[in-house]
Amino acid sequence: MDASTIPTPAAPAAAPADFESLLAPIVDRAYGMALRLAGNRDDAQDLVQESALLAFRGFHTFRPGTNFRAWFLRILVNCFYMSRRRKRPEQSLEGMEEEAPLLHLYVQTYHNGMHGAGRDPAREVMDRIEGEDVARALHSLPEEFRVVCTLYFMEDLSYQEIAGVVGVPVGTVRSRLHRGRKLLQKRLWQAALDAGLAATTVAVEEDE
């Protein structure tokens, strides 16, 4: 069974006593995920607490031996979507800055001596700037792109695992990640410039 598959109630039930031992090692990373999604510490703490409560109540559906972190992250993502719907409608793409060409960040890192051979340029920049700058860049994305980009870049989940967490087909994950990556590029590069990690921005032709 794929690690990201969420087990059904028919699967062998986990013992409630195991819940805390499984949650403790991942709670800090879950909070980091919640902070990038929610954008502030209070909402992130509320999100993790609500997710933990729902996870505990539904722990009988977790199948021992499968990926607890992916199982818990799916609950956290669902809680995030529900909390956003309660507060205000989902962010619209209208009025957002124009997407950067697909190779924008690749060209910028290359011309500024920051390009790591074989590395994703977005990861290259994220590794060099402050975590708060990364969080702000991710939080600026519309929710559907923010979730998949955070799971991919910060949680290192595969497309298949993200599909299991978010509950959408792998093709949808790929599409959202592609669009989110294009929206992220200018934000990440501006953060690199502000941090003094780069000196110049070069022109990049639009991709087809």
Rank of each mutant, 00 (worst) to 15 (best):
A3G: 13
A3P: 01
T5V: 03
T5K: 02
I6T: 00
P9N: 00
A13G: 10
A13H: 11
P16E: 08
A17I: 04
A17F: 03
D18S: 00
E20H: 07
E20G: 05
L23M: 10
D28F: 13
A30L: 09
G32I: 06
L35R: 07
L35T: 06
G39K: 06
N40I: 10
N40K: 11
N40V: 08
R41P: 05
D42A: 00
D46W: 02
Q49H: 12
A52W: 04
A52Y: 07
L54H: 01
F56V: 00
F56W: 13
R57I: 02
R57F: 06
G58C: 02
H60W: 07
F62E: 00
R63I: 05
P64W: 05
G65M: 04
T66Y: 12
N67K: 05
R69P: 05
A70V: 06
A70G: 11
I75L: 02
N78D: 02
N78T: 04
C79F: 05
C79V: 04
F80V: 13
Y81Q: 13
R85V: 00
R85Q: 07
R85D: 02
R86D: 00
K87F: 03
R88M: 08
P89Q: 10
G95H: 06
M96N: 13
E97P: 03
E98Y: 01
E99R: 04
E99N: 00
E99F: 09
E99K: 09
A100K: 01
A100H: 02
A100Q: 11
V107T: 01
V107R: 00
Q108H: 07
Y110A: 07
M114E: 01
M114F: 06
M114Q: 03
M114W: 02
M114L: 15
H115N: 11
D120R: 13
P121S: 06
E124K: 09
M126P: 10
D127T: 11
R128D: 03
R128Y: 08
G131A: 08
E132C: 10
D133K: 13
V134C: 09
A135C: 12
R136F: 08
L138C: 05
H139S: 08
H139N: 10
P142L: 03
P142S: 05
E143K: 13
E144W: 12
E144M: 13
F145Y: 11
F145M: 02
V147D: 05
L151F: 14
M154I: 08
E155I: 04
E155C: 09
D156W: 05
S158M: 05
Y159G: 03
Q160Y: 14
Q160A: 14
Q160D: 15
E161V: 09
E161R: 02
V165H: 06
G167C: 12
G167N: 14
G167H: 13
G167M: 15
G167Y: 10
P169K: 02
V170N: 04
G171V: 08
R174Q: 11
S175M: 10
L177S: 09
R179V: 11
R179C: 08
R181T: 10
K182Q: 15
L183T: 04
K186S: 07
R187E: 13
R187K: 15
Q190I: 05
A192M: 06
A192P: 10
L193K: 10
A195H: 09
A195V: 04
A198V: 14
T200E: 15
T201Y: 01
A203T: 11
E208Q: 09
